Amino acid sequence: MKTFERYFVALNKWALVLLLGAMAVIVFANVSLRYLTNFSITWSEEVARYLMIWMTFIGAGLALRTGGHVAVGNFQEMLGTNGQRALRILILCLLLAFFSIMIWMGLNYMDRARFQLTPATRVSFSYIYAAMPIGFGLLIVHLLLVARSFVMENRFAEVETDTPSAALAESGDTHIAANRE
C-alpha cells in the first residue's frame, strides 16, 4: 500500500508540475510575443484559465493530505480523546459524502455542457468540467490514504521537501539546519 501511495502522490505532483509548466510557457510566450511583435496568441488566456482550473482540482488532494485546507479545531480541542476521534470519524464521513456528491454533480455538468464549445479553442466544455469529478475522485483517494492517521492521531501526511534544511535535519545536524533558517 505504501508503494501505491508513493507512486500515486508522485504522479499527482508531476501532473501539477506539468500543468503549471504549460501554463507558464503559454502565458510567457503570449506576453513576449505581444511586446516584441505586437502579436498576441488568441487562445492563450483561455487555455491558461482552463489549466488553472485543472490545477486547482488536481492539487486539492495534495493539500488535503497535508492538512492544508482551512479547518477550525477549537471545538475538537474541548472534547476528550474518544470525543475527538468520534468527531474526526464524522468529519471523514461528511467529507466522503460531499466529495461523492461533487463527483456526481461534476458528471452532471459534463453531460450538460458536452455540446457547448469554448470561444477560442472550440473544445467541448465537458473537458473543462471533467476536472471536477476527477479532482474530487483524487480527493477521495487522498482522504482514504490519510484517514487512519487522521482519525487515530489527528495527524496528516508529512510534507516532503527537497530543501537543504530538510536534508540536514534528516541527517541529524538539526542545529545547523536551525541556524540556517
Rank of each mutant, 00 (worst) to 15 (best):
M1N: 03
E5P: 01
A15L: 15
M23C: 00
M23K: 00
I26A: 01
V31S: 06
R34A: 13
R34N: 08
R34I: 04
N38L: 12
F39H: 15
T42P: 04
T42N: 12
W43G: 13
S44W: 02
E45H: 06
E45W: 02
E46T: 02
E46P: 00
V47W: 00
R49P: 00
W54H: 03
M55Q: 05
G59I: 02
A63N: 14
A63G: 15
T66A: 09
G68I: 07
H69N: 13
H69E: 10
V70M: 15
A71V: 11
G73K: 13
F75Q: 09
E77S: 15
G80R: 07
N82P: 00
G83V: 07
L87S: 06
L94W: 03
L95E: 05
L95W: 02
L95V: 10
L96N: 07
G106D: 04
A113K: 00
L117A: 13
V123D: 04
V123Q: 08
F125R: 10
A131M: 07
I134F: 15
V146M: 13
R148C: 04
F150P: 07
M152N: 07
R155Q: 14
F156D: 01
E158V: 12
D162P: 01
T163W: 08
E170W: 11
D173G: 09
E181K: 14
